[in-house]
């Protein structure tokens, strides 16, 4: 690749990443207003599908092959896109009726209009409306893989986006390692590896998310085509901090500053994918099945 084309691709990568992340965080301010209105219990229900989808996305796209040499040179930049499917189950939750404390099924952040309760004819209370209408939550990030030493590769994710106008600051950082397991089992006809990965994502002053994963991978190459798969244990924890400004009579809010910790529901996943290697170019895609269904894919450049 010529120097000019290399620069062009670098610029395009940054533009794509900034565009997608900017669009996602552009919605943060009305979203923040919506969340600040919720009591902590209602906020958990309202946000849970978002947390689960976010965590599922972040824990995706970590590998595209289990082949790691004992000693070699791997330097590869991957641009990975992923998306979690949002089904009907993610669009509703059970909230608390402000008049009598009973359960009311209403919209989550991905749902339609909020439910309406009516204590007496003519007087109504409407729960918060869904704010993100989508069947798919996308995410996009770069990933650097460096190795191979003693059958081990390091994986790094890092995206710092400063605050611009009303768009809050976004910082994504991830670090992990993958180790070749098949080197200890020479007779095995496939490549085997294991991984560990940690990530953190901060968006403004509202969200801070941390993920952790442990995985086992398998792959087999056929010329330029590599078929890969794996099993992964993962966790996602999101802290939401806000000042409660809502007004639900009779519900005592002991502290106007509310701090929520929400855990993603995705804990295990199975992955199946393919990778096509064209010299320095890699194109890959996979599907991940667990509590959430995630599709990921992208391109990689390097050795």
């Amino acid at each position: 690749m010529t120097r000019k084309r290399s620069i062009l691709f670098t610029i395009m990568s940054v533009v794509c990443l900034l565009t997608v992340l900017t669009l996602q965080v552009r919605a943060q301010n009305p979203l923040e207003d919506a969340i600040k209105q919720l009591t902590s219990e209602n906020a958990k229900g309202y946000l849970q599908p978002f947390v689960t989808a976010f965590g599922a996305n972040m824990n995706s796209g970590l590998y595209h092959s289990a082949d790691i040499s004992q000693l070699g040179f791997t330097l590869r930049l991957d641009l990975i896109a992923m998306g979690t499917v949002i089904g009907d189950a993610e669009k509703k939750y059970k909230a608390t009726n402000p008049y009598d404390g009973s359960e009311v099924e209403t919209a989550t952040i991905f749902g339609e209009q909020g439910a309406i309760v009516e204590p007496i004819p003519g007087v109504q209370y409407q729960f918060q409306n869904g704010q993100v209408k989508t069947s798919f939550i996308p995410f996009f990030l770069p990933q650097l893989t460096i190795g191979d030493v003693f059958g081990t590769q390091a994986i790094i994710r890092y995206v710092p986006i400063p605050e611009v106008n009303n768009v809050p600051k976004v910082t994504l950082f991830g670090i992990g390692a993958r180790h070749c397991v098949s080197q200890y089992i020479p007779a095995v006809p496939v490549d085997l590896s294991a991984s560990i990965f940690y990530q953190s994502l901060e968006v403004g002053n509202l969200f801070e998310a941390k993920t952790f994963s442990l995985g086992a991978q398998v792959s087999k190459s056929f010329a330029i085509l590599t078929v890969y798969g794996g099993l992964q244990y993962e966790s996602m924890s999101m802290d939401v901090n806000y000042t409660y400004t809502g007004n639900i009579p009779g519900i005592t809010v002991p502290d106007a500053n509310v701090s929520l910790n929400l855990d993603g529901k995705n804990q295990f996943r199975g992955t199946a994918g393919v990778d096509i290697s064209l010299a320095l170019l890699h194109i890959f895609a996979d599907i991940n099945i667990g509590s959430a269904t995630v599709i990921s894919g992208g391109v990689g450049f390097g050795f």
Partner: peptide, 15 residues
């Protein structure tokens, strides 16, 4: 990435 996501279709409700 850009298609399929619609923000703020319904009015924000503030108590």
């Amino acid at each position: 990435m850009l298609v399929g996501c619609e923000f703020g279709k319904y009015p924000l409700i503030l108590d």
